[in-house]
Simulated scan of single mutants.
Amino acid sequence: FFFGICFIMDGSTKEVANPRSGSVVSVADNETVIDSEEGEIQLGNPNIQRQKEDILYHLGLSNLGSDLALMFGDTRFVCMGGSAVRAEKFANKLATRLSISIPTGMGLTSVGKTERFSLFKIGPIISVNHGMGMPSMSILLHEITKLLFHAKARGVSFMRIGTSGGLGIPAGTVVATTEGVNGKLESCYEQIVLGKEVKHETLLDTDLAKLAVSLSNVAGKEPVPCVLGKTIGTNDFYEGQGRFDGAVVSYSAQDRIDWLQKAYDSGVRNIEMESTCFAAWCHRMKIPGMIICAVLLNRLEGDQVTATPEQLQQYSANAQEIALRVIEHKLAIEQ
C-alpha cells in the first residue's frame, strides 16, 4: 500500500475512489444501500426492514415494540461520549442551554435499558455513552443508526465529545478532528470480517471541524482553545499509545519519542481509542460526523495525567462548550 491509502487484495472487496480526497479505498463488494426518503438515514443491509421486528438488543428497544418515529423522528444530533455519567450531565446541560423546560418534579431519565449504554433524548438531540474503545463504540453505532433509520430521522449529524492525550498542544486544548488514523498512521479503520481483513477510509466532515474552530473564539463568549488535527485511534490505552506507565513495556524511550514525533509531524494532534471506528462509520454511512476532544496532557512531555479534578472538569467542559456552539449554530440556521 501507499501511505494513507488502503488496499485489500481479496475477491470480496472492490476499490472505490473517494470524490473528496481522490484516494482509493476497498469496501465490501456486496454492500448495498436501502432506499429511503431524501435525507433519511440509509442502511447497507437489505435484511433490515421497517415492517419486520428489529431488536436493538443493547439499547433495550425494538422498532415494533416502541414508536421510534414518535420518540426519535425529530433527531438532528447524536452526541456520544465514553461515560454514562457524562452523557447524562451533557443532556442536562443541553436542556439548560437550549431553554428546554423539564416539568416540575421530574428529571431526565434514560430511554431503554442501561446495562451497556445510557441514552437520553432532549429536544432534537440524543446524548448517549459509547463505552470505552472501538468494540463498544461499534455496537452503539450499529444500533443507534438502525434506531434512526426506523425513526425516519432526517439530516442527522453524529458527534463524539470526549477527552484524549494531546501531541504538541497544551492541556485543555480542544481538537476538532479532520480524520482518524490508526497506530501505523494510516487513514483507515481495520476489521476482520469472516476471517478476512477489511479496511474503511476514515475521513470526517471538514466543514463541521472548521466550524468548530471558528466558533471557539467569537465575540461575547469566552474563548476556548481549539485546533484542527488528525486523531490517532488505538486498540488499547497503554502499549498501543506508546506509554511508559503501563504494567509492561516492549519498546525503548527512543522508539516511543520517534513514533510520537512522527505522528505530530504528520498532523496528528491527539490520541484516543475511538476515532478510526467513528470516522469510518460516518464516512461509510454518509452521516456528517465530527470528533471534539479536549486533551488532558501533552504526550510529548509525559504519560501521567497530573491535572487536578477541577482542571479535568474544565478540560471536559471545553469540549462540551465547542459542541454546544456547533449545535446552537446549526439549529439557528434551520429556523
Rank of each mutant, 00 (worst) to 15 (best):
V175R: 15
S62F: 06
V326T: 05
I55R: 08
A280N: 07
T231N: 05
I291R: 04
I333Y: 01
F237H: 13
G172S: 02
V175E: 15
G81F: 13
T173W: 10
G107V: 11
S127P: 03
I287L: 09
L59W: 07
L141P: 02
A17W: 11
L43V: 11
V111A: 06
V305L: 15
Y238T: 07
I41K: 10
T306G: 07
V248D: 13
P135M: 00
C6F: 04
S136K: 01
L185Y: 03
V25N: 14
G165H: 13
K89F: 01
T231V: 07
S275D: 10
A247M: 14
I100P: 09
F1M: 10
D29W: 05
N318P: 10
R20I: 11
V25G: 13
L56K: 00
A319W: 12
L56W: 02
L141F: 03
L56P: 01
P124F: 09
S214P: 08
Q314F: 01
E53N: 13
A95W: 04
G168P: 08
I257F: 14
G180R: 12
C188P: 01
P309E: 09
V24M: 14
K184E: 11
I55T: 04
E201N: 05
F77Y: 10
T104C: 02
G168R: 07
F117M: 07
H329E: 00
A151E: 04
G165I: 00
Q51V: 06
R50I: 13
Q254S: 15
G183L: 02
K184L: 06
A84T: 04
G183A: 07
A209W: 02
A279P: 08
E310W: 09
M9H: 12
K330P: 00
A17C: 12
K152N: 11
E31K: 12
V156R: 03
V85Y: 08
T109Q: 15
S252A: 12
A84S: 08
S136H: 01
P46V: 03
E53H: 08
L185Q: 02
K121Y: 03
L260V: 10
F120A: 01
R76T: 14
D258S: 15
C79V: 12
V224Q: 01
E222A: 07
N235S: 03
V181D: 11
L141V: 02
A279T: 09
T32I: 14
Q313N: 15
A84G: 04
F7M: 05
E38G: 06
T145L: 00
